[in-house]
Simulated assay, not measured.
Amino acid sequence: MSIKFSGWEVFCEKSRDLKPGQAPKSSRGYTMYHGTHKTNTTAIISSGFRPSAGGRLGPGVYCSRNINKAMGYPAFCPPNERVVLKLSVRVGKVKKIDGQAAGMSHTWHQHGYDTAWLPPTAGLEEDCVWDPKRLTVVGIAHCTDPATKTSLETLIKKQQKEPQGGQNTQKSAKCQVCGNQTELNHTIEKCWECKAAICPFMDKHVCHKRG
């Protein structure tokens, strides 16, 4: 007796949260945090981030998966004037900046990387994202003023419904076959049995052709 099966079924890990020392995987999306002065929040939400001119990892937008890291910024600012933004970050190609790659701490983007990741070996982990369009504000993680927090959350919801300018103008396309968000078009193939259109990133495909 022989068994013939055409198709597949997979279980995908879609968690956006990683352990503190766990390296972010390229082309994934993660929840991160960015601390800023409350006077900057409206412009960031409405128009997107403005990359810093420099820093420990060079130019870019700095954020962290550890909210405690973001809670300390801006450094010379009263705690009650700090706001921590919750972000959705598409990291793209990631470069780990450790002892072996210390020489690339300011040149990683020139080598084709979109994000530099500093592991929590000398403090709390930190990320630097080259393109601000890879970051989207999705919530307010910390704000001591309830009225300001409510106002900012309302603005975020408005931006999500009516995207305009800055960070929200560039959206990932959705694959018409697998339904997943993607920056690059997926290669569509045909099932070797039923000839139906299939995508390698589909969670499940079962061929119903009868022999």
Rank of each mutant, 00 (worst) to 15 (best):
S2K: 11
I3N: 07
K4L: 15
S6G: 13
W8A: 13
L18G: 13
K19R: 10
A23Q: 09
T31I: 14
Y33L: 10
H34F: 11
T41S: 12
T42D: 11
I45P: 05
S47Q: 04
R50W: 04
S52Y: 03
A53C: 08
C63K: 02
C63E: 06
I67L: 08
A70T: 11
G72W: 06
P74L: 10
P74K: 04
A75N: 14
P79V: 05
P79W: 02
R82M: 06
L85Q: 06
L85A: 09
K86W: 01
V89I: 03
R90S: 13
G92E: 07
K95R: 10
K95L: 15
K96P: 02
A101G: 07
S105L: 14
H106R: 13
T107R: 02
T107H: 04
G112A: 03
Y113W: 08
D114R: 00
P119W: 01
T121R: 01
G123H: 01
L124D: 15
E126I: 00
D127I: 12
D131W: 05
D131N: 14
D131A: 12
R134V: 00
L135W: 01
T136N: 12
V137K: 00
V137C: 05
V138K: 03
H142Q: 09
T144A: 10
A147D: 09
A147I: 04
K149R: 06
S151K: 12
T154C: 14
I156K: 07
I156Q: 09
I156S: 08
K158L: 15
Q159V: 12
Q160Y: 03
E162V: 10
E162Y: 07
P163D: 06
Q164P: 00
G166E: 06
Q167A: 13
N168L: 09
N168W: 04
N168M: 06
A173H: 01
V177I: 06
N185F: 11
I188E: 05
K195V: 10
A197E: 15
I198Q: 13
H205Q: 07
K209M: 14
K209N: 10
R210S: 03
R210M: 02
G211R: 02
